[in-house]
Design a protein around this nucleic acid. Structure first.
Lengths: 199, 199, 199, 199
DNA sequence: AATGAATGAGATTTCATTCAT
DNA sequence: CATGAATGAAATCTCATTCAT
């Protein structure tokens, strides 16, 4: 007696994947406001109604898009956390243009898509928790520049600095960027060195 | 600096001010997508055509809104830079919810309003330059935690960290926030102490 | 500082009147479901968006249409109540195809247009009250066939009988109609006669 | 009598019954406009295409729904006609909320579903004929209040009065209702008494 | 300085229906 | 029996913008 499924199109459909891809490209290139059923359809080469067949509402489409991106982020994060120098890998993850640009769009979008917000908050908290877990396993930051920096704060610092670089960089703002990148790199280098000394 | 041609509406008009106020409230509460001539008109109690009388195009309205906000930011920044502890004041400026939320909306908006982008880039560069100027006048950071942090990098660091706190906070993400705030405060405190020692 | 008007088009506009006329014709000919902005526009010779200019929402259009019709009904009712034989005039009013057909559409419509319902209930109660007032002023029904029929019940009886004749007649059902009309006519005639005797 | 071509779905299928049930509930709760293949499917827990499998077109579904309801009405009517006091039972049948609400929807629907109209007219005529037959067998109304009321007219009177009570009652109109009910009850009581005297 | 009228485009969504499997 | 995919039409509504007054 199965309750009528809200999302009809199968998760695995190639059509569905093409739509998500088109939506992501639109969001990246023209901002979240460009992600309309019409534009997604025309970009992916379908009729608008087919988009509605796969994603009942625009919210559904956006949430699917976010989840799709989140899965990708998760993978990248896990890779970073497993790298030889996880902190540096984490920093590179945050300073990576490809994903942070989308994150910005989604954060702005969350303002008027309440349904999205819940997903995003949950995902952000999960990611931070994963990072904290990793940082805590690091061979102690004591004696380093970041001696009294709690793991969660460190995660947030890197995220904030990385994000502002990407956000401003995307717009064309450049002043201070080179200096900041160098400074963070030095930080990470010193941290690595300090830790070597401890060993 | 080219001001977009405006039909008549004087800069000083109370009507114009009411429209900008309505536009800002809309952007703050419902996101930039809610800033349409129609909604601004209805919120401010005017007819849609009157909005077009004051702001020929929607771009004009958004640019005026950005300039309005930028002027306000400039004032706040100047106040911060003139404070007894300018770094701390700068930090408080960045961590201030009232303006950063709007900044986020404008950054997302810049993605599809090319006309806005130029203004924003110019203004960001100007602000950073003002901060660098101030930091440079500070009684040297040498010997402090931030010894080799170039002024422009310091400005960017505080901006990034402050902004991520506000952005996430607005969404409801809380993890790591308290720790990060404490950490930055300690930093600033230590910096102030170091500098006192130097005197 | 006038609150932004919800209904923009002036009450007196000829365009607006043409739209209401088109809407009424559609409702009469094809049923309430045919009253869509598109169809109204095309029938009246305007673009669909112009209909939305005059009637913000479809509810607004329908409510305006109901009020328009209600005003007309009120006039007809007042005429009937002022006639030499008000009961007979009232009966003719109820059995009149032109308005009762629309009333039926509105009653069905009230099922899914909650905003309409309130208007309709209020108007129905008012009309019945006006009729009761009139019937009460009649030179007593005592001694007649309808001796113990309260005015409100009489109003409701005539309304119900008239309405079923119109409803069924519109569909093509005819059986019993002639007999029922004759019977009511006789009733009214006898009533008139009884009253003459009393004088 | 021509049954609209149905692809396969047997009359007796439980699935088909569930669909009709969902359709009826929708029509009752949200009006006839809510009876779409999509909504029926989602309410009954099936895919939209399955509805089309059982009912080729929406007209087929509506006609089946009408026939289903008509069968039910027929049963209720036969019960009423076989009751000890058939006229009172008939009145109760007409004043019964459960079916009259649907009848109203169908009458409005008949306006734009020509295919339905024929069925409805035929059924109405049949029902009236059955009632006339019964009334004619009653121990004569001569000498009673309704002496010269032809059977068909009496049927129509009761139908009209009952229907207006239900229609208005459903909307929330109450004025005159209590009085009208009492009056009809008295009528029926007097009629029963008159007939007893005759015996 | 302000407003009413009008327009064309486009967004979101629902719909009935068909077809292949 | 049943479903997934696809389509084209249409409904509702919002939008920016223009123009005449």
């Amino acid at each position: 007696m199965a309750i009528a499924a809200r999302r009809i199109g199968a998760e695995s459909s190639a059509t569905r994947a093409a739509m998500l891809e088109a939506a992501e490209a639109l969001m990246r290139e023209e901002g979240y406001a460009a992600v309309s059923t019409r534009k997604v359809a025309s970009r992916a080469g379908f009729k608008p109604s087919l988009v509605h067949y796969y994603f009942t509402t625009t919210d559904d489409l956006l949430i699917a898009l976010f989840r799709h991106g989140a899965d990708h982020s998760d993978m990248m994060l896990e890779e970073a956390l497993a790298a030889p120098d996880p902190l540096r890998a984490l920093w590179e993850f945050f300073a990576d243009t490809s994903r942070t640009a989308l994150t910005l769009e989604f954060m702005a979008l969350a303002n008027h898509r309440k349904a999205l917000r819940a997903f995003m908050v949950e995902h952000s908290d999960q990611m931070r928790a994963r990072q904290v877990e990793m940082i805590r396993r690091l061979p102690a930051l004591e004696g380093t520049v970041l001696a009294d920096c709690p793991p969660a704060a460190l995660s947030l610092l890197l995220a904030g600095i990385g994000r502002v670089l990407v956000m401003e960089g995307g717009m064309g703002v450049k002043s201070g960027h080179a200096e900041a990148r160098v400074f963070v790199e030095q930080w990470l280098a010193r941290l690595a060195a300090d830790r070597v000394l401890q060993d």
